[in-house]
């Protein structure tokens, strides 16, 4: 589904991704771990098409299509979703209005009419229940004054509304309290199917207990330095990253 080959990307002439290779198939869950500043969020941004970063080498393919010339919004229409590590605020725009716009823009791109209000309401009701979101919340300005945890839960609500093919969750777990983590994780699990894929960026084993990954990758200095099964996460939790850093330094 998602195929990344020898991906190099830089910002202001500073190389951050230095040759990433990653293949994510439909139905799989991948976890990406790695020390602060190793390039995890950058990778997520580049997959989503953020033009701040320049891809200098390599390629990203989605369902066989090269994404090089594809704009961020078109990538979204094709099913790429990013749950942001730091969701931004848009004052005066309600969560509902934002979602309505997002859904209808995607539909427009596919040549469909706007979603009828009745269906939209039903969808909102269904998904807000899935994530146990109080509906009053949905009339508030997007992310404005939301607590850290509320922002993260709202990201997953958006994911649920948009039903992406490839969802990248960038540290969605950080900021969530124990109950919220459970609710959000179970939401993600319910959305998971054999036709979509999830990439989890996280620092903690805890999330991976709820959403069990098929593969775990360690990113260091813009490269995947180790890949393994879910047990790799446990090993990291125990040993930290130093042993890997040393291994790769050699």
């Amino acid at each position: 589904m998602l195929k990344i080959k020898d991906l190099h990307a830089s910002v202001d002439d500073k190389e951050i991704l230095r040759g990433i290779n990653l293949e994510v198939k439909a139905g799989e869950v991948h976890a990406i771990m790695g020390p602060n500043g190793s390039g995890k969020s950058t990778l997520a941004s580049v997959i989503a098409g953020n033009e701040r970063f320049e891809v200098t080498q390599g390629s990203i393919e989605l369902s066989g299509e090269d994404l090089e010339e594809v704009s961020p919004e078109e990538r979204a229409h094709k099913g790429v979703f990013l749950s942001f590590q730091y969701p931004v605020e848009i004052p005066g725009v309600s969560v509902t209005n934002f979602m309505k716009t997002a859904i209808n823009e995607s539909r427009k791109a596919k040549g469909l009419e706007d979603m009828p209000a009745k269906d939209m309401l039903k969808l909102i009701r269904e998904k807000s229940e899935l994530l146990e979101i109080d509906r009053k919340f949905l009339s508030r300005s997007l992310n404005e004054g939301f607590s850290g945890g509320e922002k993260k839960r709202n990201e997953i609500f958006q994911m649920a509304m948009l039903e992406p093919k490839v969802a990248i969750l960038d540290e969605t777990d950080s900021g969530l309290d124990i109950d919220a983590l459970r609710i959000v994780a179970s939401g993600v699990n319910k959305l998971k199917s054999k036709d979509n894929a999830v990439i989890l960026i996280t620092h903690y084993q805890r999330l991976l207990e709820y959403i069990v990954p098929d593969f775990v990758h360690v990113l260091h200095n813009g490269k995947i330095v180790k890949s393994g099964g879910k047990e790799l996460a446990l090993e990291l939790e125990e040993k930290g990253y130093d042993w890997l850093k040393q291994e790769t330094a050699v």
């Binding site: 961020p72 931004v88 725009v93 859904i103 823009e105 948009l162």
Partner: peptide, 27 residues
Amino acid sequence: GEDQIFYCNQRGIDTEKAIALIVNGFS
């Protein structure tokens, strides 16, 4: 901000529409 625009883009909203949305929210 560029980050606001990118956030909208990521949700499938093109830049023109994103600005309209932000401006309308502001107003």
